[in-house]
Amino acid sequence: MKFCPKCKSLMISSEGLFRCKKCGHTEEPGENTEKMTIRNKRVEKDIVIVDEADEVRTLPTVSAKCPECGNDIAEWWLRQLRSADESETRFFRCTKCKFTWREYD
Rank of each mutant, 00 (worst) to 15 (best):
C69I: 01
L59V: 00
I38P: 02
R93K: 11
H25W: 10
T26M: 07
F99Y: 13
G30M: 03
R82P: 00
I73V: 14
T26G: 05
C20M: 11
G16Q: 05
S83F: 08
K6M: 12
I49G: 00
R90L: 15
F3R: 05
V62A: 11
D85E: 14
T58L: 14
V56L: 09
I12Y: 09
N40M: 12
L78K: 09
K21E: 07
T100L: 03
T61A: 10
P5G: 02
S13F: 13
D51C: 11
D51M: 14
K41Y: 12
E31K: 05
K41E: 15
F91T: 02
C94N: 03
F3S: 07
L17W: 04
L59R: 00
G24L: 05
P29G: 10
K8T: 11
N32H: 06
V43Q: 13
P29L: 06
V48P: 04
K65L: 13
K21C: 02
K41R: 14
K35V: 15
T33M: 04
I73P: 00
E52R: 12
K98A: 13
N40P: 01
K96M: 02
F99V: 04
D51T: 15
R90A: 12
E31S: 02
E27M: 12
M1C: 14
P60A: 11
P67R: 01
S63D: 06
E27A: 09
G30I: 02
E75H: 00
D46M: 09
G70A: 13
V56Q: 01
M11N: 10
L78N: 10
C23H: 00
S87Y: 06
D85Y: 13
L59A: 06
K98W: 01
R93P: 01
K35M: 10
P67Y: 04
I49T: 11
I49Y: 07
K41C: 15
E28M: 13
E88P: 11
S87E: 13
C66D: 08
Q80P: 09
M11W: 11
V56D: 04
R82T: 14
A64D: 08
A84Y: 09
W101F: 12
C7V: 07
A74W: 08
T37W: 06
E15L: 11
E34A: 12
F92H: 08
P60N: 11
I49L: 09
D85V: 08
H25D: 08
C20A: 10
